[in-house]
Amino acid sequence: MVAYPADVIAELERKANLIRSHIIRMTRAAGSGHPGGSLSSTDLLSALFFKVMNHRPSDPFWDDRDRFVLSKGHAAPAYYATLAESGYFPIEELMTLRKLNTRLQGHPSMNKLPGVEMSTGSLGQGLSVANGMGLAAKLDRKTYRIYCICGDGEMQSGQIWEAAMLGAHFELDNVTAFVDRNMLQIDGPTEKIMSIEPLADKWKAFGWNVIEIDGHDMRQILDACDRAKDTRSKPTMVIAHTVKGKGVSFMENALSFHGKTPNDEEAKKALRELGEDQ
C-alpha cells in the first residue's frame, strides 16, 4: 500500500470541497440539475482527476491519456467543476450550466466540451463504453487506463450486467469502474425500489475484482485505484459507499435533492457549511 503523505490527501480534500461549492453555485444558477448525486461522486472525481489519472488538460486529446466515462451523466455539475479546476476550461464558464448555447449541457456532451470523453445521460450505457475503450487500448497495445463512475440505481439496468460479462470475458484489467453506492435513486432507496444487493457478490460472481471502500475517504479511493492497477486479467469494480448530498448537512441522504436545486437561502447555508461563502 502506498503511503500517501498527509499534505497530498489534504490538498485533494481541499479540492473536493471547492468542487462541492461549485456544484452549489452552478445548480443554484441553473435552477435545475442534480446536486445530490453530484456531491456523492465528488471525492471519487477529485481523486481521479487530481491524482490518479494521467491526463493533460492543455492537450485534451493526447493519445496516451487515461479515459474517463461518467456513466451517471446527471452528476455533470461535479464533472464539469472537476474539469474546470483541472484547467480544461475557464472556471467562470461553470455558471453557464444548462443555459442556452452552453458547452455545459445538462448531461455531458463529448462534442461540446474538451475533457468529456463520452456523451452520457441515459443510464446503464457508460460501462459498455468504458469496456470498448479498454478493448481498443489493448488492440493498440496502449497502457492507458479507463475509469468509469456508475450510480447504484443504475445497477438495475440490464446493460450493466451485459457489460459485467463482457469486461470479465475479455479480461479488461485496464478498466476500473466505481459504483457510487449512496443507497438512493429518484423514487426512493434502491433496496425498496428494486434491490441490487448483494452487490459485491454479484460483481464477484461475474468475474470482477471487487473492492469495497468508503467513497469519501481519499486514502481508500487512491488505494483502491492502486490495487486495480496491480490486478491482472480482471476488471475492477470499486463499490464506493457514499452519502448522497455529501458535505451539506440538509442535503445529505435527502431524496428531494436528487433533482432539486438549492434556493438562494439554501445555497447560502450550504456554502457557509463548506466554508466557501466569501
Binding site: S32, G106, H107, S109, G121, S122
Partner: peptide
C-alpha cells in the same frame, strides 16, 4: 424538456 438537454 429543457435543461436536461439532448440525452433526455
Amino acid at each position: 424538456v429543457g435543461g436536461d438537454g439532448a440525452s433526455h
